[in-house]
Design a protein around this nucleic acid. Structure first.
Lengths: 127, 127, 127, 127
DNA sequence: GTGGTCTAGACCACC
DNA sequence: GTGGTCTAGACCACC
């Protein structure tokens, strides 16, 4: 697939997979009705065990994000976009507090924001 | 102490303790030479096992952030401020890209920034 | 044919097909000598792969329930009625114990029984 | 624990474990606040792999039936009794239809019901 | 001791 | 080919 896993992260691999799929849908790289990679293919691509991908997919199914297609894999159903955006903003809020507490100045911070939200660049968050 | 632990987070508790102490130093709440809480007290305060705090302190000592004072607890040595800030900004960069990719508008984002970096408040990054 | 498959059930599809055919014989909807649908037709009707129906038929043949008629499909031979009924009653016994243990009252239960065994209706076990 | 697993059943082992725990709560053998067996103990007792029990417990947690107690195992929260009873009655309805379709007479059936719902016996559904 | 995650590999059902 | 379940065993965090 199109994303890398950070094995040194404390975030479990299966959660990273879930997050990546959801983000890909939000960003439009995956649309409703699209097939996502088969469990075995994705596992091979990102170098993890089949069970790890299977768990991610199973939970995405429970969340209503994907749907199993008998014998053909999983297709995208859609995501609760607004809900996920709120979660992201919450995450951002926490991180910004850390930044401020750590003495990062407002100007420095705005510079980082500009790097991402400047005219073009920055659409790709996982390459 | 002055921070809460998120037990539902994937970030291990001992890492959260380390991060919090380092951030407190960066923000100036803790200065070189200050005593930090005893292992036993901090453990009681935040409701975790002594071993967990001990591990955080042990690693902070290895990192040169704190130093054991014979029989009197630990005192702050200092932190590689700039390095930590750069790491934070890196983390922020990644998260912002996710935000953009997920369709969060620039205006919404600035609103979140303002929530934290507004006038005075916001020194507390963990409340 | 006259039955639906529950794809979300843990019972394998080929077992559901077998059970349905056996029940149809027991109930008299299928009699000795009757032809059952061709593998291809049944597969199309219930929306499963040919191999799945083929497996069900193969096992029914092994069990002596149906018999291939050269070039003409399968005909019903018969079933060990009494044995199957005893198995069903055993299954029922277990489920009723669960019901009682779970606090379902006798009256509630009788109501369910009545729903099925009331006057005439209820011959269709899969509608 | 106090229940056996049917390894020949098509119902996955982890589902059987979930069902048994829920039934034990419904029947009063497990009450709110009780600890359930540790993952490793239950796995050893019923002769399955740790992962299988872990999956059952994880899903029960998602369902709000049990709650992890840091470092001490899982405690019972409770169950949506009424919902589970409705599920059981649904299951019963399906089975009864099979019974009727298979030619089991009303009298035979009532006999089975009486075996379970007669004055005393029958409370133990899993011994 | 407790639970959480992951691997390597097996076997099954279904297409 | 697809997904689903399970095992045996490892290593981690936390108590």
């Amino acid at each position: 697939m199109w994303f890398a896993i950070d094995f040194s992260s404390h975030t479990p691999v299966y959660v990273q997979i879930k997050d990546n799929i959801k983000a890909s849908i939000l960003s439009g790289k995956l649309k409703t009705g699209d097939y996502i990679p088969s469990i075995r293919n994705l596992a091979k691509d990102i170098g993890v065990n089949i069970n790890t991908v299977a768990r991610a997919y199973r939970e995405l199914e429970i969340d209503g994000v994907i749907r199993p297609q008998r014998g053909e894999g999983y297709v995208v159903v859609g995501v609760q976009s607004e809900q996920i955006r709120e979660e992201l903003k919450d995450e951002l809020l926490k991180l910004l507090r850390k930044c401020k507490a750590s003495g990062i100045k407002h100007d420095e911070l705005i510079e980082v924001v500009k790097k991402v939200y400047s005219g073009n660049g920055g659409e790709e968050f996982d390459t």
